[in-house]
């Protein structure tokens, strides 16, 4: 494992924990898209079914379990524990427009036509677009709390660091996974506009608000 991959995983973990703590401490999930969080829970579940079939390393197993546990806890907080604070009126992205095409694509373009591999592929495709309901919600309300923008920054940074990891792996191991790389590029592109706003506004101490 190279440094980029490790930093990417840490960034991902930080994002997930940041969101969890934000909701728990403020006892509110205002401004958070429950739909994006459900999609991420689906992504982790579909991808990490290999916990039951393949053992990679203790590190991989622990991270997978933590990601799944945190993700389901977040969904539970939004739709049950702090349901009253959930901003459902602004969370109106039609998720079927993401789930159906990515599911079809996973059946058509995959490494191997087996159930686990199709689910893995589906999770990769779905992850690349799963943040859209959240970004849509922000564009609709025109603003985001600063802590929410930190969450989005680290979540976006994670896949960008994975891009560096894949370049490194190609150089050193001649390894590349076309499905992951193309989806990772698409995923990172979705964050570019946000990265720009984050650097030009949030890092300068201003609140993220859209004109």
């Amino acid at each position: 494992m190279n440094l980029f991959r490790f930093l990417g995983d840490l960034s991902h973990l930080l994002a997930i924990i940041l969101l969890l703590l934000k909701i728990w401490k403020s006892r509110s999930c205002a401004g958070i898209s429950g739909k994006s969080q459900v999609l991420f829970a689906v992504v982790f579940t579909a991808r990490y079914l290999d916990l039951f079939t393949n053992y990679i390393s203790l590190y991989n197993t622990c991270m997978k379990v933590v990601y799944i546990a945190c993700s389901f806890t977040t969904v539970w907080m939004i739709y049950s524990k702090f349901k009253a604070t959930y901003d459902g009126n602004h969370d109106t992205f039609r998720v079927e427009f993401l789930v159906v095409p990515t599911a079809i694509l996973a059946f058509l373009v995959n490494h191997d036509f087996t159930p686990l591999e199709i689910l893995w592929t589906f999770s990769i495709y779905l992850e690349s677009v799963a943040i859209l309901p959240q970004l849509f919600m922000i564009s609709k309300t025109g603003e985001a709390e600063t802590i929410t923008t930190h969450y989005l920054f680290f979540l976006g940074l994670y896949r960008a660091l994975y891009l560096a990891n894949w370049i490194r792996r190609y150089q050193t191991e001649n390894f590349y996974d076309q499905i992951a790389v193309v989806s990772g590029v698409v995923q990172t592109i979705f964050y570019c506009d946000f990265f720009y706003l984050y650097v030009t506004k949030v890092l300068k101490g201003k609140k993220l608000s859209l004109p």
Binding site: S57, T114, W120
Partner: peptide, 10 residues
């Protein structure tokens, strides 16, 4: 280099 259906990343 990985076996079929094996993914070593998260």
């Amino acid at each position: 280099p990985l076996a079929d259906g094996e993914h070593d990343e998260l």
